[in-house]
């Protein structure tokens, strides 16, 4: 993919802050990245790194005390500051989201049929009958057996993996351009996770979707994604293709993160650790949030740190990186 193509999603200098009793929580801090058509992009980071808040900000789903600044362009249209009614036409239609816990994101009082048909009746002006037929087709597509009977069940009558399939089917009903998946397999067992990952790959081929996949599991990233954004303390530390991230990462945090994972394919006597703990978002250090734990930190780390392009589409935010300042 070349740089000249217009990205599907163009995020520039996005920041998200929350006003709480003890001050301002800086959840996301000056984030910039692009997502091109047809890519699967992974966003990894530990809890509190801002990965979920970034996506909630894109979807206009921030909590009421959240403040967003910067620019998010989706298919050329600015999403920051847009009215809710305009946003409602985009989300659910061209942009859809799958959440981590399918039990809490489906309405337990409504049958799957009414939850699914609602989407089509609202966004596509379909009649109930057509919407139901379309919904059943989509449930079959995500491999739910006996879909025409099961659509009339309530969410609690499905298992965890099946519920997540229902969520995926629901988000695909309008054939969105962009699917945002926030840890959709974290609550599932590995054998079910493998089924869902395979399904997402098939669906991407079939519908030509672009997927943003949020996870903390580097194994899932290696399995599914084309590119990765590594986040820490609200910063985007490094973004590159998966081969670059896994084999030639530049940022000390990315390197340290990969070294701490006990893996099936290698054996080490003792795991490497990152000393200390993730930062308190209320009291972030000035400059790089990783510097108190970084083995390569120096006096420059507490100043403002530019984004550098190490090579095309490999961008790093670290004073020690070599490359063109963006």
């Amino acid at each position: 993919m070349t740089e000249k193509k217009i990205p599907l999603l163009d995020v520039r200098n996005l920041s998200v802050e929350f006003k709480v009793q003890d001050g301002m929580v800086k959840a996301v801090n000056g984030l910039s990245f692009k997502v091109y058509d047809g890519e699967i992009i992974g966003i990894v980071g530990e809890s509190g790194s801002g990965k979920s808040q970034t996506m909630l900000a894109l979807m206009g789903l921030l909590a009421s005390n959240g403040k967003i600044s910067g620019s998010v362009k989706f298919m050329g249209q600015e999403l920051v500051g847009i009215s809710t009614s305009k946003l409602n036409k985009i989300r659910g239609d061209k942009m859809a989201m799958i959440f981590q816990d399918p039990m809490t994101s489906l309405n337990p009082y409504l049958k799957i049929s009414s939850q699914m048909t609602e989407v089509l009746m609202l966004h596509k002006n379909m009649s109930y009958k057509d919407a139901l037929a379309e919904s059943i087709k989509m449930l079959e597509r995500v491999k739910i057996p006996e879909a025409s009977n099961r659509i009339h069940l309530y969410p609690h009558e499905f298992s965890g993996g099946m519920r997540q399939r229902v969520m995926i089917a629901m988000s695909l009903l309008t054939k969105p351009k962009l699917l945002i998946a926030d840890e959709p397999t974290t609550a599932l067992d590995v054998t079910v996770q493998a089924q869902i990952l395979e399904l997402l790959k098939e669906l991407r081929k079939e519908f030509g979707m672009t997927i943003i996949f949020i996870t903390h599991d580097m194994g899932v990233v290696a399995n599914l994604c084309d590119r990765v954004n590594v986040m820490y303390g609200g910063w985007l530390m490094e973004t590159a293709s998966i081969n670059t991230i896994f084999n030639n990462s530049v940022h000390p945090y990315t390197q340290a993160l990969l070294a701490t994972i006990p893996s099936l394919d290698t054996h080490v006597e003792k795991l490497k650790t990152i000393p200390g703990e993730p930062p308190n978002l209320l009291q972030l250090p000035t400059g790089c949030p990783f510097q108190p734990r970084c083995s390569q930190a120096n006096h420059l780390c507490s100043e403002s740190i530019p984004l550098r392009r190490v090579e095309p589409r490999h961008v790093v935010k670290c004073v020690n990186a070599q490359g063109v300042v963006l």
């Binding site: 590995v190 054998t191 996770q193 493998a194 990952l197 599991d217 580097m218 194994g219 899932v220 990233v221 290696a222 399995n223 998966i242 081969n243 896994f246 990969l258 994972i261 893996s263 099936l264 394919d265």
Partner: peptide, 9 residues
Amino acid sequence: AVPVANPEL
């Protein structure tokens, strides 16, 4: 079924 943190594998 366990994903390994190694894209080639």
